[in-house]
Amino acid sequence: MEEILKVDNINVYYGAIHAIKGISFHVNQGEVVTLIGANGAGKSTTLQTISGLLRSRTGSIEFCGENISNTPSHKIVEKGLAQVPEGRRIFLQMSVQENLEMGAYTQPGAGIDTDLERVFQQFPRLKERRRQIAGTLSGGEQQMLAMGRALMSHPKLLMLDEPSMGLAPILVEQIFEIIRQLHKDGTTILLVEQNAQMALSVADRAYVMETGKITLSGTGAELAASDQVKKAYLGG
């Protein structure tokens, strides 16, 4: 299998705080890989470093065989790496459709209408609300908008940061159903989650992060069955 993302020995600091302590992992083409771990383990920091919003002091990040550790964020998106950030971060004062258009910022203008239709097919709720101001959407709808917005850029790799955060259980189910569907359609996904059970249920492979380090890795099923993971993250 072809490696699409390869993170090799990155160290990230917030001032004096050593947030990521030399982690390495990879994502293969077509896989769903999840990073699970408690709050503060460094999962979001890892995604922000891959997206270029933060920088590693060491090592390298390769995307599709190219070193992107020093590439500016906006160029990384152009290369096909999209992120749905933690807390969704949609543009609250812009309409649903404008948010989606911003997702397509790196795309040539001609294909945007087709892409809009494709996203509306995936998320019919967004179509109903396309003219509405995004700030008026419910939490679940905002998450769908954030995912739809990222899909507008035709990502080769989609990174999702805590998509289930703050959502009611039924909406969490819906979001993970969408992740399964995207996986089936061939989208490569790197998923960061605190909801370990849900994350492991969709993941081909998983890494467990604790205080800035990767402490365990394996297939989704292996980790779901591991005593250590059960005890720490799955409630016994």
């Binding site: 997206s51 270029g52 919003l53 964020s73 906006h74 160029k75 998106v77 152009e78 999209a82 992120q83 950030p85 971060r89 949609i90 543009f91 609250l92 004062q93 812009m94 911003m102 997702g103 910022y105 790196t106 917005r149 850029s153």
Partner: peptide, 11 residues
């Protein structure tokens, strides 16, 4: 509205 989110759009 949000500079980091804008960067993540490729702006």
């Amino acid at each position: 509205e949000d500079k980091s989110a804008a960067q993540l759009m490729g702006i």
